[in-house]
């Protein structure tokens, strides 16, 4: 690339300004979230907003030890990890079949999996609520773990099907000549080679489940309440505890941001279901 002539000082300064502006635009809300979480209610409600103040961890102590945000985070963690593990266990063999076997109705099955990603959660939340209430499983983690599969399973299946298809078929054929069955080939040859896709789809599955709100507020009350559902329960009442809301938000967001940064190279691929690499 013509990196020397065109990138003179004249054109580099506007670039630096623009890039910094974009970066600030993306990051500033997080700065404000964290600083607000370190403010007492008195400071948070001062007019105009204060940029320099004495930080306190009081909000964190309060939300974690008095309001039980810690317990809801444990719920979120259990739900997100369980649904991710289930999605991988169910999704990997299915992806292998889609990539390796020929059978009738394959493309219809493919369309059905994709459509699951498009459906609004409220469409499933209404009947799921009635069914779950009827069997008496309302406010249990199991229900969330199962319903989150509606978006996690498609992700795992897509990304892994893609990866299985990129594994040369010669490997399978050699193994078949050796007398290995399909399960053997799947477990000992293809699955180890597909580990990158398994890892990436697990991270996505975890992020989406951890972030989910609508099912959580419809299907849980207390025992199985997740962290995002807890965060919005502060919104009731007249005077909003800004510091506590932002402390809870910070606690919720930190793990997903870490995961997102780890998977940043794959993020686009995951969010577009492998359509863009």
């Amino acid at each position: 690339m013509a990196a020397t002539g065109s990138t003179s000082a004249r054109s580099i300064l506007p670039q630096i300004v623009l890039l910094t502006a974009i970066l600030l635009f993306c990051v500033f809300p997080f700065y404000w979230m964290v600083t607000t979480s370190l403010k007492t209610q008195l400071v948070a409600l001062s007019q105009p907003p204060q940029w320099i103040f004495t930080p306190t961890l009081g909000n964190y102590a309060e939300v974690l030890f008095e309001d039980g945000v810690g317990r809801t985070m444990v719920n979120s963690l259990i739900v997100a990890v369980s649904t991710t593990v289930l999605a991988v266990l169910l999704g990997c063999p299915a992806a292998y079949a889609l990539a390796r076997f020929e059978f009738r109705g394959k493309s219809d099955l493919w369309f059905w999996f994709i459509t699951n990603r498009m459906v609004s959660p409220i469409v499933l939340a209404l009947p799921f609520f009635l069914i779950v209430r009827w069997i008496g499983l309302l406010d249990t983690k199991l229900v969330l773990i199962l319903i989150y599969l509606t978006f996690n399973l498609p992700i795992v299946i897509w990304l892994c099907t893609d990866q299985f298809r990129s594994i040369p078929y010669d490997l399978d054929e050699a193994a078949i000549l050796e007398g290995a069955g399909h399960w053997r080939i799947f477990r000992s040859i293809c699955l180890p080679l597909a580990m990158p896709a398994v890892a990436v789809s697990s991270i996505f599955s975890f992020i989406f489940s951890w972030n989910e709100l609508l099912y959580a507020i419809v299907l849980t009350r207390n025992d199985a309440k997740t962290a995002p559902a807890m965060a919005i329960s502060y919104m009731e009442g007249y005077s909003l505890p800004y510091g506590k809301i932002m402390a809870t938000s910070t606690l919720i967001v930190i793990p997903v941001l870490i995961f997102a940064l780890i998977a940043s190279k794959q993020l686009v691929r995951g969010l577009t279901m492998g359509a863009v690499k």
């Binding site: 974009i22 997903v256 941001l257 993020l267």
Partner: peptide
């Protein structure tokens, strides 16, 4: 050019879309 600044910016771009949607709304309120 500007490889370092661009890498940082790209990482910054990752943050908004991974953020819990509910938290994005709460941040807006504040």
């Amino acid at each position: 050019g500007l490889t370092f600044l661009k890498t940082i910016t790209r990482l910054g771009l990752v943050l908004p879309m991974a953020t819990t949607y509910a938290v994005v709304g709460l941040l807006g309120q504040v």
